[in-house]
Amino acid sequence: MWRGGADGAFQAFDVPRQASQTVLDVVTHIQRALDPTLAYRFACRVGMCGSCAMMVNGVPRWTCRTHVDKVVQKNELTIGPLRNLPIIRDLVTDMREFFDKWARAKGEFRGRNTRQDDFAKVPPASPPRAQASAGIECIGCGVCYAACDVVAWNPDYLGPAALNRAWTLVLDERDRERTERLRAVAGDAGCHACHSHVSCTERCPKHLSPTASIAGLKREVAKAVVHGDL
């Protein structure tokens, strides 16, 4: 298990195996029984809050829903803080940049209607609504961000989660900041930096496809540029 900050090191602990044990159970056992100074994050323990993501044997995972049986190698687990984020201490990373990028990608809904207007009627089966549904279940765990090589190579890159969020809003016909959002997500720090390695999609615990969302943004930006809308 990683201990300390960026210049820390791995420390070994012996943890008893139990039936249906999760990686988060292992971390909790260490903190409660072996070393109370261990720093880590968790909240819901049922895969909803997105706070317990860590690197497990070099792969980013949601630890509360990852069974030890599935990932253990030779009776050993290597657990570290999420990649591509500054380490605060032990398993805790500074996620400010990750969420600041959501804001930079204009990941905030801006409605067109006022409270005097009637409800917008969006047919659930319409293609934009169906595409948005495929992307809205993100829990903001940062697994995709840690899995992405482009984030590692280009620190300005907004990353899969922020771009996925922007895509769900681009698809939202009630939103009024479509053009500003397409501007915010275009370019070298945005969707055009994605090489479609698909690591985000491979690792997303919610089985979303940020790769498809980013491809959608590339298409919409291209259309807007060709039509002179940007």
Binding site: A186, G187, K218, A222, A224, V225, L230
Partner: peptide, 14 residues
């Protein structure tokens, strides 16, 4: 380069 330029490069690349 502007986002428009980057987008044009992407279109040219494809």
């Amino acid at each position: 380069m502007t986002f428009r330029g980057e987008a044009r490069l992407w279109i040219a690349q494809r």
